[in-house]
Write a protein that binds this DNA or RNA. Structure first.
Lengths: 242, 242
DNA sequence: CCCCATCTTAACTAACCGGTTATTTATTTC
DNA sequence: GAAATAAATAACCGGTTAGTTAAGATGGGG
């Protein structure tokens, strides 16, 4: 669990922890019920609450009042810090995306053999989706809205190229070593690695009915992960003919 | 295209076409603006309109007024025939599910070699999702709601067992012939076949941004389909050791 | 110590939305 | 052909929702 380093904190919360023991340590009047001011904390609580609410019901189903209540903030604060419901959704999306990328970078795959690196990436993807199911909901929601928010996000634009390079490097090393077959497209492979975990987990409810098994039972989850590792191994394996 | 036999008609519409030249062919008073009565047609129009509206915006985002307008029916008719928005969604879901199963049955895979049958199933799955994108939206929407509607549907309960048998039979034949490796779980294989098409197509919008390519360009689609066929072939292939 | 930008709150509103009521009109039944 | 039934319509309702107003609280800078 700790391996993915996901603490449930938003990127904003992470930043705050690291950089800010600034706001004078002992608030003068911690007396009574008078709420202390802490803009960063308020903003952070709103973002975290929004994450949960958007995850629960999607962009359309989420209620701004619920977010405010959950964040223990006044609704006006949401509009003060995030301008609109859609902009708040965009912020959540960005934070979430940066979260998975940060976790991915911490894997240090370059130190592993190509096969181990690929296995590790498959296992990481599975684990991350399993432990952060809201990420799947956001991606679904965003696609329902034709990526309207993602398209406008400048913050993420620079992340994409770096991201596909991870898989490309593994493939290149594997082909050079002769353990992977040549000609594998990095994008197709990456999509496939995501797909086999994503589909199983995002469709956990209908899947459990259609296939008449509890897809989320512990044994079933382990079984699926091993199946996925095997699927990708076979996909990249060099043909024994040569 | 015609191969999947999908005409865009609902199951209800299909039934009506086949069984009902009953309602006397020439309506007596087609005069003026007086709206003719046609319960089946009205119900069918509502279902079709609901399909489009739910597909556009999901259960939460769909507007009952929009459905009524699109169906050229009075809103009250929706409640007359379908009781509630949620029941209407359930009806759409059932119709959609029966649609893909009907198309699947018409494939007649038992007449093919195991390898050809599996290829055909992969191609069918891809084509069906591509031509009926609303199906993907419904599954997503339903999972966001934890399969609340699907669970209650009696009409579909009997479909599920028959459905997994299709893949199981292909596997059994392939293993018997020695072309497939033994020990492949039919459910895992089926999930994987669905996953590699589903993920690519349902995440077409975010995917096109993240991977910086138009995933829906004609060449890209063909490329992906062939990649998927190859992925499944390698997954089931008997190991050359024996 | 006081000004003033920033943070925070409660109350408000205009539009929307799922569902209903009351009524009319067409079709079937006997 | 009258009574009964089913289909269709328009107008309406109560509750909800995203977003706003206006005013007060707070605290850092001068």
């Amino acid at each position: 669990m700790a391996t993915t380093e996901n603490t449930g904190d938003s990127a904003l919360a992470r930043r705050r922890k690291a950089e800010k023991p600034k706001s004078s340590s002992t608030p003068r009047s911690a007396s009574k019920l008078a709420r202390q001011r802490d803009p960063d904390a308020t903003k952070g609580r709103i973002l975290e609450a929004a994450k949960r609410e958007f995850s629960r019901a999607g962009l359309g189903g989420a209620r701004v009042d619920s977010i405010a209540a959950r964040a223990k903030a006044n609704k006006r604060m949401i509009y003060h810090y995030f301008n609109s419901k859609e902009d708040l959704f965009t912020a959540v999306l960005e934070d979430s995306y940066l979260g998975i990328r940060a976790a991915e970078r911490s894997l240090a795959l370059d130190g592993l053999t190509p096969q181990d690196a690929l296995d590790a990436l498959v296992r990481f993807t599975w684990r991350y989706y399993l432990e952060n199911p809201e990420f799947l909901t956001f991606v679904n929601s965003e696609n329902l809205h034709k990526a309207r928010h993602l398209r406008k996000s400048k913050a993420l634009a620079q992340e994409y190229p770096r991201f596909i390079e991870i898989v490309q490097r593994i493939i290149d090393r594997g082909v050079a070593d002769g353990v992977f077959r040549p000609g594998i497209d990095a994008v197709q492979l990456n999509i496939t690695i995501a797909a086999i975990s994503y589909y199983y987990l995002t469709n956990r409810y209908t899947g459990s009915i259609v296939y008449d098994r509890d897809l989320m039972a512990k044994d079933r989850l382990e079984e699926r992960l091993e199946f996925n590792v095997e699927t990708i191994r076979r996909l990249v394996r060099a043909d024994p003919s040569a």
